[in-house]
């Protein structure tokens, strides 16, 4: 199988451009394998025969266990280590997530998500009830914010990851803390959520964010 895949790259001063690369294989490699293969070429040449630079991207586990590799593939936000090359069309586009600042090429800065968890006070005070078993499976990959129609980049809206975070912080035996987290949750999630449920559909861990929301709504 041979196809041309276009990758969104960054040049000087953050300018973005598309660069075509040739993929050759049986289609069973993942997008991460493809990116690694390009970087391991002794001389990196793009599909137009022009010399190129190593591609920057995030990846750690390659097994859908760490959330590092979220990017937009063929128009859909996905975890790149779960997408096989056979699924990609000729001229398919691989782009960085659009709602986070690009560091270089396909790697983005998701610091805002971690800061959001802090804003929500998503931590236990005093001995904690066992945390919600769905909420502890969030990969903090950012796909929920990428697809959310209500998330404006840079804003303090915490999206699906915020729902999971708030759920982790709210099951405290300390009633005052639970109240505090609820207050922040209302401000940084509930108030601006339009119930599109796009986060529920995209979550790679299938976390039932709608059910979590319903549970949090009952918390005082």
């Amino acid at each position: 199988m041979k196809k041309i895949i276009k990758i969104k790259r960054t040049a000087e001063k953050g300018r973005q451009f598309l660069e075509p690369f040739l993929y050759e294989g049986d289609g069973n490699e993942t997008v991460i394998d493809f990116l690694e293969e390009i970087n391991s070429r002794s001389e990196i040449v793009n599909a137009d025969g022009k010399p190129s630079q190593p591609i920057s991207f995030n990846c750690s586990c390659k097994e859908k266990k760490c959330g590092a590799c979220a990017m937009v593939i063929d128009g859909k936000p996905r975890l790149a280590c779960t997408v096989h090359m056979r699924e990609l069309k000729e001229n398919a586009l691989i782009e960085p997530l659009s709602k986070f600042p690009v560091i270089r090429d396909l790697s983005v800065d998701r610091t805002i998500m971690y800061n959001g968890q802090e804003t929500l006070k998503a931590w236990p005070e005093a001995p904690q009830e066992p945390m919600d078993t769905d909420a502890v499976r969030c990969l903090m990959c950012g796909l929920c914010l990428e697809v959310c129609p209500n998330y404006i980049p840079g804003s303090s809206f915490t999206g699906g990851a915020g729902v999971a975070g708030a759920a982790r912080g709210m099951d405290s035996t300390d009633a005052a803390h639970t109240k505090d987290v609820k207050k922040e949750y209302m401000k940084h999630f509930f108030r601006d959520c339009g119930q599109s449920l796009s986060c529920v559909r995209i979550c790679p861990m299938n976390i039932p964010l709608d059910k979590l929301q319903a549970r949090l709504a009952k918390k005082k």
Binding site: E118, W123, P124, T133, V136, R137, C138
Partner: peptide
């Protein structure tokens, strides 16, 4: 254990706690 995701859940536990001290 926590199903077959002990590491992920352990890390959430530690990260969640660390956030308090970060704040």
């Amino acid at each position: 254990y926590c199903g077959s995701e002990t590491g992920l859940i352990l890390m959430h536990t530690l990260i969640t706690m660390a956030r308090k001290y970060e704040a």
